[in-house]
Design a protein around this nucleic acid. Structure first.
Lengths: 263, 263
DNA sequence: CAAATAGTGTCTGTAAGACACTATGGG
DNA sequence: CCCATAGTGTCTTACAGACACTATTTG
């Protein structure tokens, strides 16, 4: 049966129900460590286990569903989590949420990934600047940031989803300027380098990194300012930069040569 | 509502029905042109319009659903298209279908993309070696290969899906050896170059391409043989190669420097 | 002052692209 | 014989990484 014939004679009640959810791999950097937002599950199955935040898709686009879930779990956008109406139109002028990068990661739909029914989950990947612990807010009390190397044994197939998200994030830092999505609106080259070292888990040569970043057109642009103070343990006041207008890095910033080209 | 609370009190009948389909962007190269597999729609909506092959997801993984749709539309795997049982277990030892590369492309789920109900479609991208026109087979009579630059005004949001698939394919040729998925099991460097020019739509310098391909470890390996005859308009008998064991090209084969790093 | 960081200079190996050239075989 | 293609040589430019070095600021 192809799509055409399916749509001709389609009757929803003839087929087993399928639920569509979104799950979000939200990454941020806290204290120099790459962290992911997790929630504690209260109910079966996987009660007590940690899981990626996510939920049912309503009358909205998939992107909107992912943004809504992220907002609810981080407690960032004041948009009420109680409203049951169509959220397609508006959530209030979000604060830090506007600086969050959100993209689709992949879709996970193996039969049996949820023991109770067929659930197809569209996973999203989010890059966020350092955010406050979400416990402050209302109903997001069960969510918290966990260093990615401590995020194991997640519910459902979320270990795999997280692994896919991390690999995507590492690859994206190579050829896009998305590292700036982890920083504030103004940042130093050193802060940018810390993003790379946190995500890649590898030390980078400070001098070469500095020159490389400035040589890629459109990656960063100078604000003309410097920080008010030098580093905590000394050093000159570094210059401040903004994200540039490039959407692709050319030439790319390749990860340290893992001779391990996968065979 | 997050996933945890959704799963606690979930009742499928409380929510509007959602259908999940797979659609396949199947690409091949015919007569030096990049072509996509399309089907003619017989029923409303979009009757008479062309669309990507696809269909309803059954009790199977999403990957299996995509492979099954592709098999049915190309008429390649003898596996019956009439069987209604669980296909998770087996399709017969497929012929050319084993050489097809299949990967998930993305998921499209805007409300209203199908005028009758909420349909979330998981799109797949397939790279196939030159295949016979599928009209030969049974129920695949409505499917045919169309040069991608003539594939316009497709049904649903398939123009967008196709565009995303093409961009993915072009990018993948840069850093993976997937160009070999478009060729037969043995190929010449010239044939491989034709894959690149067809997909990228750009001429490549034959000499530099030749040296570059051979210099990337694991991209191709020599069979020690040459073709039986030279080119149609003369020339030496080129050597034959097989796909190597690399899964990533290092260093990558970058597209001709579009100074247009996207801004 | 000591230590740490920002930022620059320089050198080396590798890779990409431009161009030229030889060799081979079909029409 | 003509011409297109296979395959190689060489040169120039660009870039990545290693290393060294100076300057600046905090404790």
């Amino acid at each position: 049966m192809d799509e055409a014939s399916f749509l001709e004679g389609y009757d929803p009640r003839k087929y087993p129900a399928v639920a569509v959810t979104v799950d979000v791999v939200a990454l941020t950097i806290r204290d120099g460590r790459l962290c992911v937002l997790l929630v504690e599950r209260g109910a079966q199955p996987f009660a007590g286990r940690r899981a990626l935040p996510g939920g049912f898709v309503r009358e909205e686009t998939l992107d909107q569903a992912a943004l809504r879930e992220l907002a609810e779990e981080t407690g960032l956008t004041p948009g009420g989590s109680s409203a049951e109406e169509d959220t397609a139109g508006g959530h209030e002028a979000g604060s830090e949420l506007d600086r969050v990068h959100l993209e689709q990661l992949g879709t996970y739909g193996d039969p049996g990934r949820d023991p109770r029914m067929r659930v197809v989950s569209v996973a999203y990947l989010a890059f966020a600047p350092s955010l406050p612990e979400p416990t402050a807010g209302s109903d997001a009390a069960r969510a918290y940031w966990v260093p990615v190397d401590e995020a194991k044994d997640l519910a459902f197939d979320h270990d795999q989803v997280l692994a896919d998200g991390l690999e995507r994030a590492r690859a994206k830092l190579e050829y896009t300027p998305l590292a700036t999505a982890f920083t504030g609106p103004e940042f130093t080259i050193g802060e940018l380098r810390q993003v790379y070292t946190a995500v890649w888990g590898e030390e980078l040569h400070a001098g070469n990194f500095h020159r490389k970043v400035l040589s890629v057109p459109g990656f960063v642009e100078s604000t003309g300012e410097t920080t008010a103070r030098g580093g905590e343990r000394g050093g000159p006041k570094p210059k401040l930069y903004r994200a540039g207008d490039a959407r692709l890095l050319h030439p790319a910033l390749l990860r340290p040569t893992r001779e391990d080209r996968v065979r």
